[in-house]
Amino acid sequence: MIALAVVAIIAALEAVRVVAERNTMRKLPYLNVVSFAITGSLMLLLPHPLTILACAAYFVGSTLESNAIASTWSGGIRKHE
């Protein structure tokens, strides 16, 4: 019970830091922390075997999303032409 409270508070604090940070690129690590914390709280909210599946899906999805944002922001793959 206390673990869930800690994880949820961490998620909320890091969400504030995401918003407070002005630089777009520096927002992304904080966003990653939020998504890690949310993954943990999903598992702690409903301890059930199927929740692992949802956690894995959310983890993969959020990582892919922030990777795609970072990759596009930095200009994508350099084309040789």
């Binding site: 892919l64 990777n67 795609a68 990759s71 596009t72 994508g76 793959i77 084309k79």
Partner: peptide, 16 residues
């Protein structure tokens, strides 16, 4: 084609 590394080089699109 998206010029995004995770999309173009990895196996993510196939798996998803």
């Amino acid at each position: 084609r998206l010029p995004i590394e995770v999309i173009e080089l990895g196996h993510a699109p196939v798996i998803i």
